[in-house]
Design a protein around this nucleic acid. Structure first.
Lengths: 189, 189, 189, 189
DNA sequence: AATGAATGAGTGTTCATTCAT
DNA sequence: TATGAATGAACACTCATTCAT
């Protein structure tokens, strides 16, 4: 919420990079300060603990994954997906960290916040799915939960594959193909 | 694949439990030995390093996720999924760890092995998908990659939800519903 | 209460020595482990924190200052004092630490326990003073609080002088002189 | 003895407060600057090190405990005590710090100066005691050292009790009672 | 097969202090 | 006069591992 200083932005960016590349276990104050090129003590001018750095990363998640609310129903689902692909492309490392839910597992406060963010996304998409059903745009005889799992599950797997392949393919294009195929399947014929 | 002693089995079981509940960061020799009820030094009688314990967990993964090869084509896909659900139910903690790919991220050897296991699964399922296409059991105008992402992606998300909900719903039943819905969508009409 | 191991005794002894000679501020795990001749980590086999080492020192205080209950009334007061002088002589460093109440000031738990120990001593001595009054052994027209302050205050100052003079005089002898003088003053004539 | 600026006075006052309340260990530049409401760096405009702040506190001690030289012999002793009680009441926190000799123990220069101040007081009072003896105002068969220990020891204990009780009783009144009682005991009859 | 004691490297964090602005 | 940013050393403590018993 509060404005971040340049140093704070740098700290978060480098921290995300470390987590994405080498795992949470390698996010140490020492590694982080080395990556930035200052001493360990210097970090504490900008964040008063490692924990607060992780909290700030979660703030970034939240900011990052705020929807643009463009469209409703079936169109809205597509926007939801495509917007997310765009965002992931704009910050691939952050995407990788976001999809490693285990990252925050060992801290009650962090994992709870992560849970809330994910929960928010689900509610948002389920709403769009129900809208699309009401509009008779998609099949109504498949339960919303299953549709959600297909849509988000396949997207998640695609993004994970992209991350673990070193971002080596065009996520947006593959994402479009995936969605077109899925859309055709669930569309009301 | 040498036989595991009782103690070794106990060590792996407790290690998996710790990772699943509290994250990799809390898998320390101290925590592990405490969970088992021996001294830290005692662990080294059974495994000669923490690294080799993690390797043994990956062996378990491999063992665990070996397919029973029952059926081909569409029937094979269903068996593949249902078998997996059964296995996850039989060892929920291991399931949780398996789906946290970030767990092994910070060790080249471990993450490479993990990658290979996942790759094996993909090849296996892609084969079944192509079979089903050849048999004209499922739509042929959807690319195999997309089908794979839908099938496995939705399954993964379902299992993750199950894990993070504390195994609080009937995974097999929900998995069946999910598959039936998806099967109906992709079946040749 | 629980038996101390040889190492634990050594740790406490060296810790007391450091506090007595160089102040609480110099009681660091590093200094302490160096004084003992082991690594810092080794200390944690024997006490699980610096805090618990300080608590153990307070246990020692308590043990140390338990009265032998020899005598009542005026005789009891003398015994109380002489026993204490004997104890201080038997462990001069501990005496020095005991008389630096500020040592534990910055820890709620420690300072509270210290307070209780001191309070116990006061009650004990006040009882003896009141007994001596009842027995008509000492003047009854001086309030007990004042008598307590004279007796214990002068003893404390003597011990402090002894400590800060490097234990350079005969505490027992000086203590006897002090007490004889004070006794003559307060005795019923 | 150069004049202190307002800021310097404030720094010393807050430093004394911190030492009195939370112990020397909590007198850090960070805590001190926070208490004053400036940055850590700002302190160094006014004192060039933590050490020199402590030295300045000792200057204050010296200033603080300079006798008014009102009276000689027995009257002088009373004045000595009552003046001190007045001063302690006027600056209770400083009193508390002054009676925690361990505060300066870990610095050769500081502890030596403290020793000298205390030594000065002793000489001063011993002079008065000897005067009172010469005047035949007090008993001459008690050695001066013992008298000193009774007078100063009991006063010290009273002040310490006052400090650790949160200054919760009337020090002057209790001090008068104590002295009257002691005076009656040692007066030539 | 297990223990108690130890270790060297590393953990997150705080210390007093400096320096450019 | 004061600040924000930095530093090197130290802080209490934990890590995986070793070794004699």
């Amino acid at each position: 919420m509060t404005e971040l200083t340049e140093r704070q932005k740098e700290i978060l960016e480098k921290a995300i990079k470390i987590i994405a590349n080498d795992g949470i276990q390698n996010l140490t104050i020492k590694n982080l300060s080395k990556a930035i090129g200052v001493t360990e003590a210097a970090l504490y001018r900008h964040y008063d603990s490692k924990h607060s750095i992780l909290l700030a990363i979660l703030d970034l998640f939240e900011e990052f994954s705020k929807a643009g609310k463009s469209g409703s129903g079936l169109k809205g689902i597509e926007s939801f997906l495509m917007e997310r692909y765009d965002k992931f492309i704009s910050n691939p490392k952050l995407a990788k960290v976001m999809f490693s839910e285990a990252v925050f597992i060992n801290d009650k406060e962090l994992s709870e916040r992560m849970r809330l963010i994910i929960h928010g996304h689900r509610k948002e998409l389920e709403l769009l799915i129900d809208e699309a059903k009401s509009n008779n745009e998609i099949l109504t005889d498949i339960d919303t939960k299953s549709l959600f799992r297909m849509i988000i599950g396949s997207m998640r797997l695609l993004v994970i594959q992209w991350c673990f392949n070193g971002y080596g393919f065009d996520l947006k294009k593959e994402g479009s193909v995936l969605w077109n195929n899925l859309e055709n399947l669930i569309k009301q014929r």
